[in-house]
Each structure stands twice: as C-alpha cells, then as structure tokens.
Amino acid sequence: MPRSAVVIGASGGIGGALLAAIEDEGGFEAVHGFARSWQGDRHLDLTDEASIAAAAAHVATGPAPELVVVATGLLHEAGRGPEKALKELDAEWLARTYAVNAIGPALVAKHFLPLLPRAGTPVFAALSARVGSIADNRLGGWHGYRASKAALNMLVRNAAIEAKRANDRSIVVALHPGTVDTALSRPFQGNVAPGALFDAERAALQLLDVIEDLKPVDSGKLFAWDGTEIPF
C-alpha cells in the first residue's frame, strides 16, 4: 500500500536533515515537511492549533502516514535562555518554553495520530532530551527546558497508551538526538566532550536507525540516539 512520512520542524537543523534522509532512502510515496517559517500547505506553527489542523488535513488527502516525526525544540530565543537558578525564573519565558516543547507536540499528536493506519507498525516520534529525564537529573538548572521536556515525555507516554486502542502495534516514542551542531545547541557547545557533537546529517541517520529498530513493546518510552532507553 502507498505510504507517507511527515517531518514537523523541517526548516531546522535536525528536521531538515531528517526530511532529506527520508527522501533519499525512499520507500514512501509522499514525504511531507512542515515548518513555521514556510508558507501555504507547508506552514505549521506549534503555537497555532489551526495551522496544525490544516497541515493534518493536507496530509489526510494522500496516503496514510506511517512515520511522523516532530523535530522541534526551544532552548533559547531573543536573548533568553535556560535558567541556571530559581531566581532567574520568568513566567512568560516558562510559558513560551512549555508552548513549544510540550503543548505544541501534544497538539500535533492530537491531529496526526488519528491519521496513522490501523494496521502495521506506524511510528510517531517527538524529539525530547536526556535532560528531560527526572531520574537522570543530577545537576539541576535549566528549569524550563528540563521541565517542559519532562512534560513532553509524559504526554508521549499518554499518547502511546491511547494510540494502542486504535492499533495495538502502533509506536509512539520520545527520542534524544544527542548534542547536535545546530542553532539550538551552539551557545552551549563549549562543554561537549570530544566526539560527542554530531552534525545534523549524522544525527538524522542515527535517529532513523533507532526508529527502524523500534518494536511495539517500545511504545511510550524515551530512547537515545544510540538506541539505549533513558528512564523518564
């Protein structure tokens, strides 16, 4: 049967590399890329549910998507960045962080999960982060980013449970891409260990390898770029 794939956040470093890699590998009749900065049928703003619904409606006119990847994230913007201490917390910035890192992907799941086929093993994956793991948190800080990614992980777990009611072989996961040389990580690359900074093309291929190896039992979990499970 004809198949399609979807990449949301396709104008970003990882998202663009994922879109290119999926197109290069073939196997899909259609590959849809969406981004906030794009116009027309390819526009999708995570903070605008109407645009998410419109994108889903556009995809629904073609083959059912067997792969949906939400390749988005917000760590810093317009001079604001991750907080090092509680005294730096700001309600407006926290709300913005949650809107992009947790609420937006949840709304994507709301509109795109119903499009997944009810047979086979379709995959819905959202980029999360190791620092969003509560169990793995040893350093503290980065309050808004950590907490919003932890919220995303919970929403992924909930979505995985609900998706199985429609197709018990569906897979809904969160993925940690590692530290990737993109605009998101660039201000914070000084402490990255040698060999631990990936270019976007390598990161995309690593993530697709992880996705390819997923099984239905893996649904609702968080996996790193090397396929290891990260505890929530």
Score class of each variant (00 low, 15 high):
3 R>K: 15
13 G>K: 08
22 I>E: 01
30 A>W: 00
33 G>T: 04
39 Q>M: 04
42 R>I: 00
42 R>S: 13
42 R>M: 00
43 H>P: 00
43 H>K: 11
45 D>Q: 08
46 L>E: 02
49 E>S: 10
53 A>G: 07
56 A>R: 05
57 A>P: 01
59 V>A: 01
60 A>N: 07
60 A>C: 02
63 P>D: 09
64 A>W: 02
64 A>R: 10
64 A>I: 00
64 A>T: 07
64 A>E: 12
65 P>A: 11
70 V>L: 09
71 A>L: 00
71 A>E: 04
74 L>P: 03
75 L>Q: 03
75 L>E: 00
75 L>W: 01
78 A>N: 15
78 A>S: 14
80 R>Q: 15
81 G>M: 07
81 G>K: 06
82 P>E: 06
83 E>F: 01
84 K>C: 03
88 E>T: 02
91 A>M: 11
91 A>E: 14
93 W>P: 02
94 L>T: 13
95 A>K: 14
96 R>M: 02
100 V>F: 05
101 N>T: 09
103 I>R: 05
107 L>R: 15
108 V>H: 08
112 F>I: 14
112 F>K: 11
113 L>G: 11
117 P>I: 06
120 G>W: 12
120 G>V: 03
126 A>F: 10
128 S>E: 09
129 A>Y: 00
130 R>H: 14
135 A>N: 12
136 D>Y: 09
137 N>E: 06
138 R>C: 06
138 R>L: 14
138 R>Y: 09
141 G>A: 07
141 G>S: 11
142 W>L: 05
142 W>S: 08
143 H>F: 15
145 Y>G: 10
147 A>F: 06
149 K>G: 04
154 M>T: 13
156 V>W: 12
159 A>H: 12
159 A>N: 11
167 N>D: 06
169 R>L: 14
171 I>H: 05
171 I>G: 03
172 V>D: 07
174 A>R: 00
175 L>S: 01
179 T>P: 03
181 D>S: 09
184 L>K: 00
186 R>I: 13
187 P>F: 13
189 Q>E: 08
192 V>F: 09
194 P>M: 09
194 P>A: 10
195 G>K: 14
195 G>C: 14
199 D>R: 05
201 E>W: 02
201 E>R: 13
204 A>M: 07
207 L>V: 07
209 D>W: 10
215 K>Q: 15
219 S>A: 15
225 W>V: 05
227 G>W: 09
229 E>H: 00
232 F>M: 14
